[in-house]
């Protein structure tokens, strides 16, 4: 390789590196610094030490409410979504007629899922006189207050997230298709039923993929914004007021950038800790090919 071409690789990756530095790394570091300041964008940041963190840890009732709502949302959404995605992937793994059509159809909501338009559609479907209540009343039931009742609102937002199961499903489907068929044949000869086969062969063999989906879905769920922002704006009674909404309002409605940065870093720390716990726990339940335990 000539002298000039030694730097060619660096030239090729420089646009990406520049973007990473300017739009990710620098704001990342800056937000950490700002989290220790009082900064409203108009005046220069004023160093305030740990004030922002002390405030949110000791006095901020909105933060506590928002954090509990966020944790509830994540712990409700992630397991349900993984279970549902795996269930659909399991069905779509069979050789059925028009199977490719169904696979595509089930993936479509994930392409649309994060968009504002779908959130607006969701709002109409679950509104007081929306499609869901029309069906319920048509069947003789009482209409449900999906958005106005604090006990239902978060669940309704969760359903929107659940509906976007396509990407997790596609990964599960790929994992299911990679399982060696001879294992199923051997199990069948040994007299294993469908449930036994699923729990003792399928599930252990796809644990790396379950783990991957678990981490990805958890990180995404902690960052949920569009759904609750468009559908309920965090209400009623802050029942859907997830932390990203709180961060946004502190930053862009109240222009308290220092406090918003502190909130963002706390959210980052929570995601990091839970991800580390997931990695630590994976030693006990995730089995990789070549693993001596498998």
């Amino acid at each position: 390789m000539g002298g000039d071409s030694r730097y060619l690789g660096l030239v090729y990756i420089s646009p990406y590196v520049a973007g990473l530095l300017i739009f990710t790394a620098i704001p990342f570091v800056a937000s950490f610094y700002l989290s220790f300041t009082d900064y409203n964008l108009i005046n220069a940041p004023r160093w305030s030490g740990l004030d922002n963190y002390v405030e949110l840890a000791t006095r901020d009732r909105t933060f506590r409410k928002s954090l509990s709502v966020t944790l509830l949302y994540v712990f409700m959404t992630v397991p349900l979504k993984l279970a549902f995605a795996l269930f659909i992937a399991y069905i779509l793994n069979y050789r059925l007629k028009f199977i490719n059509f169904f696979r595509t159809a089930y993936y479509v909501p994930s392409i649309l899922g994060g968009s504002i338009a779908v959130a607006v559609l969701w709002r109409y479907i679950f509104a007081d006189q929306g499609l869901v209540n029309m069906v319920i009343t048509g069947l003789g039931g009482e209409p449900v207050n999906w958005f106005g009742d604090p006990n239902n609102a978060l669940f309704t937002i969760t359903l929107l997230r659940l509906w976007q199961f396509g990407s997790a499903m596609v990964i599960f489907l790929a994992a299911l298709q990679s399982i060696d068929k001879t294992l199923y044949e051997a199990a069948s000869i040994d007299g294993a039923g469908k449930w036994h086969t699923f729990f003792y062969i399928t599930l252990p063999l796809i644990t790396p993929v379950i783990f991957f989906n678990l981490v990805m879905q958890m990180v995404q769920a902690f960052q949920e914004f569009n759904g609750p922002y468009v559908i309920t704006a965090g209400g009623p009674l802050k029942a859907t007021y997830l932390l990203p909404l709180y961060i946004y309002e502190e930053a862009f409605h109240k222009f308290d950038m220092g406090y918003a940065s502190a909130l963002a870093w706390v959210l980052f720390a929570i995601i990091m800790v839970l991800t580390l716990i997931a990695f630590w726990s994976s030693r006990h339940w995730v089995y990789y090919a070549g693993d001596k335990r498998s």
């Binding site: 509104a127 007081d128 999906w146 958005f147 106005g148 468009v230 309920t232």
Partner: peptide
């Protein structure tokens, strides 16, 4: 009532 109004979502 406010609660019934909220049943329409953010609209």
């Amino acid at each position: 009532p406010w609660k019934e109004w909220a049943s329409e979502g953010e609209v």
